[in-house]
Design a protein around this nucleic acid. Structure first.
Lengths: 150, 150
DNA sequence: TCTAATCAGGACCGATCGGGTCCGATTAGG
DNA sequence: CCTAATCGGACCCGATCGGTCCTGATTAGA
């Protein structure tokens, strides 16, 4: 189904949320606060933030009064960055890059490594879309659902 | 990891193989013959061909002396077609299309449905690449690996 | 008519992964 | 110095998926 993990979806939500602080409150937020703000389960938020921190997309401050802080503005974070941070390098099949395990049927694999064509195309697509794009595209929609009739 | 299933990979190999018959022998091939030609396990080949047949990419002939036959030329089969045939509709997240299950946090999901942006971009990429492209790109490589030094 | 070969569909197991929980390490404040 | 709050890493369980096998339906040839 060519799907990204739900974690990646959450990561986008979390990052957008991180960028949406009033900017007065030090732009540092804890996992629980983000969880309550996004309605994403707290452990999941923690896991996502951990990965994002490891990938260098957010800064973490340990200890009491610690939390997470966004490093780069949303405009400079591509979807590819988020996917790479959560799901690892973007590779459609196990046949690419170093993952040569089991692909020892070299002569017969007629399309050996030629998923690269597809990989590159998709990579380009993902690089060209930033989180700011996703946020802006979602804004009119969220505005409509934030003030529902019910 | 944004990956397509291995079955899809096999499907590409199988389809390329189906198109690579000498054209004299009726272009109909059985599952076992394709399996031996591609070194893909026979049951897996059968499964792939079944799915491709259901998707209308190949024609099946039942009974003795039956087999599979390619309908359209490789040039008219996009990677998106194959992925859709094996893995189902192309949708990066469960949040798109009808899959609204569990996504009832409407107001908070700041990027609700905005993966569509990414989905469309990737769909376009996949539609623009045909199996012929993948075959042609693989040819020089397979030529080099078919005559290895070892 | 009968047999053999082949496709179609479903059932079944093992592996991998998404998702969640727990405990230890670290640090600001009293 | 001690406590509390928070991040970091390890562990676990359920679900999904890749891969295999088996049985029944269909058809060409003897």
């Amino acid at each position: 189904m060519l799907r990204v993990s739900k974690l990646t979806d959450y990561a986008v939500v979390v990052l957008v949320r991180l960028s949406a602080v009033p900017a007065c409150e030090a732009s540092v937020q804890t996992s629980p606060s983000i969880a309550t703000a996004t309605c994403v389960p707290e452990p999941t938020v923690a896991k996502v933030l951990k990965a994002l921190s490891a990938a260098g997309l957010v800064l973490s401050q340990r200890g009491a009064r610690g939390g997470y802080r966004l490093i780069r503005p949303l405009e400079t974070i591509s979807v590819a960055d988020v996917i790479a941070a959560i799901d690892g390098p973007i590779a459609l099949t196990a046949c690419v890059d170093g993952g040569l395990g089991g692909c020892d049927v070299r002569g017969v694999c007629a399309v050996k490594g030629r998923w690269d064509l597809v990989n590159d195309a998709i990579r380009q697509s993902l690089l060209s879309i930033t989180l700011a794009d996703m946020r802006d595209a979602a804004l009119p929609l969220s505005a409509s659902v934030l003030t529902p009739a019910e």
